[in-house]
C-alpha cells in the first residue's frame, strides 16, 4: 500500500505520550524508571533525526503537501513590515489562488507574488486548492509589469499542485496566459527571486519560477507533472508512485545537482510547519542576502544574466 499521509511525527508523539504515562505511573512505585525513560527518549530523538535525514522523495512529496505547511499568507505576514494586497486581472476577475501585492521587506518596497493554498476546507475552497485560472496568471503578469515600472524587486512563492484543469480555464486561455508570464519574467528588468516553498506542480508552478535565483526549501518538491500522473500515464500503475517520485528527480538536492536550483534552505527537523518562526527567519535571511547582491547589479546586465542562465538549461548529444 502506498502511503498517502506522512504520519511519522504523529507516531513519535504517541510514543512520547506513552513514556510520559509510564513516568507518571512509575513515580508512585518503589522502583525508579527515570533513567530508562531518559535513554528511551534519547533513542527516539536519534531515530527521529535519522528518519528526517533519510526521507524518500515520496515522503517529501507528502511533507510538501502537509495540511499544516506554512502557506504564502504566513510567509508574507512574517516578511513584511507593511503589506498591501492588490487584486484582479482587469479582464475577468480576481483569482485568490494567487496572492500578489506590495510589501516593505527589510525596509525596501518589493512586489511579492505567490500561489496560495488553504489550511482547511473552507480556505482551500476559497483559494481553489492553490490552482490558478488564467485570471491568476494575468494578475501575475500585471503585477510583474507594475513592479518593473516602479523598479521594485520581485519575490515569488511557489506552492501549487498546478494550473486548474477546468472548462472555464481552457476557454479563457490558460496556455496563453502562462506563456505570457514566462516570456515577461525572462526579460523583466528588476531582480526576481523565486522560492519553491511547498509543492511545485508542473507548468502552472513554473510560471513563477523564472528568476535570477531559485531557492528551494529542503522538503519542497518541483516536478514536471505529479508523480501520481506520471505513474499512471507512463507505468499505468498508481501503486508505483514511490518509485516514480524517485525516478523523476524532484527533490531540492536533485534539482541543485541538475543546476536548476541555486540554494537549498534547510527546514527545521520534521518540516517547516513544526517551527515556522525558525523557517521564516532562515528564508528571510537568505532573501535579504540575494536581494542585496541583485539590487547592486545594473538592470540590463541582470536580465541578460538571467537569460543566459535559462538558455543553458538542457543536456543533449551531438
Amino acid at each position: 500500500m502506498v502511503k498517502r499521509q506522512f504520519d511519522y511525527e504523529q507516531k513519535v508523539r504517541e510514543i512520547r505520550d506513552k513514556l510520559e504515562e509510564l513516568n507518571n505511573l512509575s513515580s508512585n512505585m518503589e522502583f525508579d524508571l527515570s533513567q530508562e525513560i531518559e535513554s528511551l527518549e534519547e533513542k527516539i530523538e536519534n531515530n527521529r533525526e535519522r528518519r528526517y535525514k533519510n526521507l524518500s522523495p515520496w515522503e517529501k512529496v507528502l511533507l510538501s503537501r502537509h495540511p499544516e505547511r506554512p502557506n504564502s499568507n504566513d510567509y508574507i505576514r512574517y516578511f513584511c513590515e507593511e503589506w498591501i494586497e492588490l487584486h484582479g486581472d482587469r479582464h475577468f476577475g480576481d483569482d485568490s489562488s494567487v496572492i500578489g501585492g506590495i510589501g516593505r521587506f527589510n525596509g525596501q518596497a518589493v512586489t511579492i507574488l505567490g500561489y496560495r493554498k488553504g489550511k482547511d476546507t473552507r480556505e482551500n475552497l476559497q483559494y481553489n486548492f492553490g490552482m490558478p485560472h488564467p485570471e491568476g496568471y494575468r494578475k501575475i503578469q500585471r503585477l510583474l509589469l507594475q513592479a518593473e515600472k516602479f523598479q521594485r524587486p520581485v519575490i515569488t512563492l511557489i506552492d501549487t499542485p498546478g494550473a486548474y484543469p477546468g472548462i472555464g480555464a481552457e476557454e479563457r486561455g490558460q496556455a496563453w496566459a502562462i506563456s505570457q508570464v514566462l516570456m515577461t519574467l525572462s526579460a523583466l528588468e528588476v531582480p526576481v527571486i523565486a522560492v519553491v516553498s511547498g509543492e511545485g506542480g508542473s507548468g502552472g508552478a513554473l510560471a513563477l519560477a523564472v528568476a535570477d535565483r531559485l531557492l528551494m526549501l529542503s522538503n519542497a518538491v518541483f516536478s514536471v507533472a505529479s508523480p501520481e500522473a506520471c505513474a499512471s500515464i507512463l507505468w499505468k500503475d498508481l501503486e508505483r508512485v514511490e518509485d516514480m517520485a524517485r525516478a523523476m528527480k524532484i527533490t531540492a538536492h536533485d534539482l541543485q545537482r541538475l543546476g536548476i536550483v541555486d540554494e537549498i534552505i534547510e527546514e527545521p527537523l520534521g518540516g517547516a510547519h513544526l517551527n515556522f518562526p525558525e523557517m521564516a527567519e532562515k528564508l528571510k535571511k537568505a532573501l535579504q542576502k540575494h536581494l542585496g547582491e541583485l539590487t547592486s547589479q545594473d538592470s540590463g546586465e541582470l536580465s541578460e544574466e538571467r537569460y543566459q542562465k535559462l538558455r543553458k538549461i538542457g543536456e543533449f548529444r551531438g
Binding site: 508542473s202 518541483f222 507533472a225 528527480k249 534539482l255 541538475l258 537569460y307
Partner: peptide
C-alpha cells in the same frame, strides 16, 4: 507537452524557449 522522462529539465525548456522568443 513536456517530456516526463527528462523531469524538470524538460519543464525548464518552456522557460528557455519563451526567453529566446522574448528576444
Amino acid at each position: 507537452g513536456a517530456r516526463m522522462q527528462e523531469g524538470m529539465v524538460a519543464l525548464m525548456q518552456m522557460a528557455k524557449t519563451s526567453a529566446v522568443l522574448g528576444k
